[in-house]
Design a protein around this nucleic acid. Structure first.
Lengths: 233, 233
DNA sequence: GGCGCTTTTCGTACTAAGTACGATGCGGTA
DNA sequence: TACCGCATCGTACTTAGTACGAAAAGCGCC
């Protein structure tokens, strides 16, 4: 459930490479977990499958992590580390845009991540460091405290929410057009009950060049421009 | 894990009311599931606990639902039903604002819901009907197709993303100020490593009247105004 | 080179959760 | 009252997380 899986449940447990005495470490375990989650989804990520993926036995993993929660924490930390931090030597708009676009790419690679990123109760340094870097930009831009709060909340809401939507897209749609896939979702809908959805799907979504991602650029511009206006006010 | 729980794991299984032959139904089961999830979180929502909550035995539940996935689908449907649909007899901005504010309230009542709402692969009529109603507003407002797509994506991203953030707030903060709770999160952070976070927390977040929710109004206005401008262009 | 210590790996097994299968029993109808 | 169908549930199998402690693999020191 919770549909954050890339595929359905037991999807190719991944072949076991070669075990070897000193080949594991917390980092290797976490990297393997991220890899596997990308492939089969977090819900299907089990200790046993992760062990197989790493060429080890389940209980070996517990030598490097405290428990599954700890694994998730570490995975989220790695995701944050993949996101480019906004550089301080650029105007705030460019810096924030860079970070936002990076976040989108990263979250597309790790569609299981968005719901987990905000809910960590033990944030690791990767997470804190990332947020610190973003805050630094707002401060340097001279935003008043209240606007900083709003800017951060609105922008992150957009990033996570957009990623959440993208993660739910029927696969192929995630890059390029979809047509067929959406077709099968739309067809069973009666045009009498859902006239606008059917029309919208037929006239827009299922057209050749459709790309959900364009809405990201639109939204990002809208928000950045709005923040700029608010800052100037 | 995934922190969508209201509390930690085995939190008061809820006393068992009275069983009774004809007292159950799919609706009663789903309503009970939503209630219980509100109280203990989705991750802690198990068939056995739900059964207790309903005063029944685990296997009885399967007479009304196919499996747990089906329960989640139904729960999400119920959440959508709680959200006010935008009325067609209002200007689009007012109608959409009404729906957005309702969505926020509802998602605050059901903090487990945001990650699940977009990921249903078997959307039930509640979900489709809701989206149909929103689409109807855009069409009636005369938005071009592309702007409709963008508006929907950006607004929903904001709604889900904001709800996701709110769900992660340390409880009390969710309504009113927090001070103490945030204090304990901030204190262990070194001002050397995280100068901006410490400053921001001290000077803004931990002040008496702080309310995260104000950023919702700010963001909603920002987006609605931006869409208005885009529509006029 | 042998020996024990540390670190890493793992086998076994317990608990909890989803749920298949079939039995049981209640309520109404003929 | 005898029967039937639907609602309820008991039992049990599978998968998952992980506690506990044993085995084993390298390492330094004698």
């Amino acid at each position: 459930m919770s549909g954050r899986e890339t595929a359905e449940h037991p999807p190719a447990p991944a072949p076991a490479p070669a075990p070897a005495r000193g080949s594991l470490s917390r980092d290797v375990v976490l990297a393997g977990a991220v890899e596997l989650a990308d492939r089969i989804g977090v819900d299907a990520l089990t200790i046993r499958r992760l062990a197989d993926h790493l060429g080890a036995k389940p209980m070996t993993i517990y030598h490097y992590v405290a428990n599954k929660e700890d694994i998730i924490d570490g995975m989220v930390g790695r995701v944050f580390d993949e996101i480019t931090r906004p550089p301080l030597d650029l105007p705030w708009k460019a810096a924030i845009r860079m970070r936002a676009e990076s976040a989108r790419e990263v979250l597309r690679r790790h569609p299981w991540a968005p719901p987990l990123m905000e809910s960590r109760t033990n944030p690791d340094p990767s997470i804190l460091g990332h947020h610190e870097a973003v805050l630094a930009v707002w401060f340097q831009a001279g935003f008043p405290l209240e606007l900083i709060a709003h800017a951060g909340a609105v922008l992150d809401a957009f990033l996570y929410g957009f990623a959440l939507q993208e993660a739910a897209l029927p696969f192929g749609e995630r890059e390029g057009d979809l047509s067929e896939i959406a077709d099968q979702l739309i067809t069973p809908m009666s045009p009498d009950e859902y006239p606008h959805m059917v029309r919208f799907a037929g006239e827009y979504v299922m057209q050749p060049g459709y790309d959900f991602g364009r809405s990201f650029d639109f939204g990002l511009d809208l928000i950045l421009d709005g923040l700029e206006a608010a800052a100037a006010r």
